[in-house]
Every structure is written in C-alpha cells, then in structure tokens.
C-alpha cells in the first residue's frame, strides 16, 4: 500500500464575496462540512443600484449630512464614489476637527455658517474632494 502525504492547502481561504453578486448560492470555499449543517450555503443577493436622483457628495454636504441617498455608483478611476468622499468629510466635520461648529449640521440641519467656516479651514482637503465635479 502506498501512502502519500499531502501538504495541506489553506482550504477556502478566500471568502467569495464577489461571487455573491452573480450566483444564486455560495459556499464558503470548502466541501467538508459538519454534521450540524452540511456545506454552508449562503443566499446570493445583488447589491442595490443607486436610486434615481441620488445625491452627489457636494449636494449631500450642503443639504443633509445625515442623508441616506448618497450616490455610490459615481466613482471614477481617479476619484472614489460620493459615499466614500462624504464619509471622509463627515469624519472631519463631525468628529475630528469641527464637531462643535458643525453640531447642528451633523444633527440633520443644513450646512450652517459656522460649519462652513470651520470646514473651509480645518477640513479643506475633505471638503475639496467632496465638492470635486
């Protein structure tokens, strides 16, 4: 009887998130299941598309920082999507550099004068990125 020893592979190290977009079911990258559930199969599900008239970063910044309608599908090769740029602006405006000046704006009010002033100096980079066309 011949015995072969196999070096193990890190089976299923890849979590197949990308597959979720197109496949109806996804396993987690290995066949050997356990008796309490067999192969783990996840339901596939497409990412939702941007709603019509989603808000670009600049529009969201001036109207409602807490909006839930920021565009996510407007990334370009040189620029992240509006959701990412607004998140960076929010971190600066609401948490790290202008939290006091922007308290109202970060609580649902439109951009106030105090918040405009603070972010124009203390969050200039994030602000410019958000306002970029």
């Amino acid at each position: 009887m011949q015995f072969r020893m196999f070096a193990a592979s890190a089976v299923g190290a890849t979590f197949a998130v990308a597959c979720l977009d197109t496949s109806p079911t996804v396993t987690l990258g290995r066949d050997a299941g356990t008796t309490d559930g067999g192969t783990l199969v996840l339901p596939g599900e497409l990412l939702p598309a941007d709603p019509p008239n989603c808000l670009p970063c600049a529009a969201a910044k001036s109207s409602d920082l807490r909006t839930n309608r920021v565009c996510v599908g407007d990334a370009t090769p040189t620029r992240p999507n509006s959701s990412t740029r607004l998140a960076a602006f929010l971190t600066c405006a609401c948490r790290t550099s202008c939290a006091s000046a922007c308290a109202d704006s970060c609580s649902g009010a439109p951009m106030t004068t105090a918040c405009e002033l603070c972010t124009s100096t203390s969050c200039a980079t994030e602000r410019a990125a958000c306002e970029a066309p």
Binding site: M5, F6, A8, S9, G12, S23, T25, V26, R30
Partner: peptide, 17 residues
C-alpha cells in the same frame, strides 16, 4: 441553484499544527 465550490483538496499535516 448551483452552489459554487472550490474543489476539495486532500487535507493533512500542513494545517495540523
């Protein structure tokens, strides 16, 4: 419904540590 599977590999000592 076609599950996607990464082919099963024989597993032994490399991970046994």
């Amino acid at each position: 419904m076609i599950p996607m599977r990464i082919p099963s590999l024989l597993v032994l000592c490399g991970i046994l540590g």
